[in-house]
């Protein structure tokens, strides 16, 4: 889905929102973006974010991967990657960004990061070493330590990015959705 579609989505929200129907998911979500002051559609912000976002994501991946040889690592890179989604939400509205991103993927990314980290650690035990003993992978490929550490950093990045995005969406939704989920 291109950025244009997201922008169109926002326009649709503006027309459809306003009806007070508690318990109806999408309508309530529309109301959220319609509240004054929370989202302002601005061509300047949308264009800027569209141009800047790919570079920020690249920088995040650079920080994650290059953390082995320069300052940086999974924690820092993950936060920067998460901030890309927040930038998109800032430009195109939180609700349409939430719909654009599959929220199940965010949870899966967090769990996948933990599984990758634990998997690399346990894999070394399976190969006869100790937990997270990267040198055990050396017989499978060259520079295994380096690649193992970089994979671990990537796993940490996935956890941090998805939890940051998740907390952002949760806080943005507030309690309205929670109450609705309880009754449903």
């Amino acid at each position: 889905m291109s950025a244009d579609d997201v922008a169109d989505d926002v326009d649709g929200d503006g027309a459809g929102g306003g009806g007070a129907e508690p318990g109806n998911g999408p309508t309530e979500a529309d109301e959220f973006d319609d509240r004054p002051g929370l989202y302002v559609e601005s061509t300047v912000i949308m264009t800027t974010v569209r141009v800047v976002a790919p570079f920020v994501l690249t920088f995040a991946l650079f920080i994650m991967f290059h953390g082995a040889d320069s300052p940086g690592g999974g924690f820092q890179g993950g936060v920067i990657a998460g901030s890309v989604v927040m930038m998109l939400a800032f430009a195109y509205g939180i609700e349409s960004t939430r719909r654009w991103i599959d929220v199940r993927a965010v949870v899966a990314l967090a769990a996948g990061g933990v599984l990758a980290f634990v998997g690399i650690g346990v894999g070394a035990i399976v190969l006869g070493g100790q937990f997270l003993q990267y040198t055990e992978y050396e017989r499978l490929l060259d520079h295994a330590s380096k690649y193992g550490i970089e994979l671990v950093e990537l796993g940490i990045g996935a956890i941090v990015a998805s939890v940051a995005i998740g907390l952002f969406f949760l806080l943005a939704a507030g309690f309205t959705h929670a109450v609705e989920g309880e009754t449903a």
């Binding site: 082995a68 320069s70 300052p71 690592g73």
Partner: peptide, 17 residues
């Protein structure tokens, strides 16, 4: 550990747990 950043080496290898 094959990584040049000693902070990362400690973080992900020596103190990986």
């Amino acid at each position: 550990t094959d990584v040049r950043n000693a902070v990362t080496a400690v973080l992900a290898a020596y103190r990986g747990f």
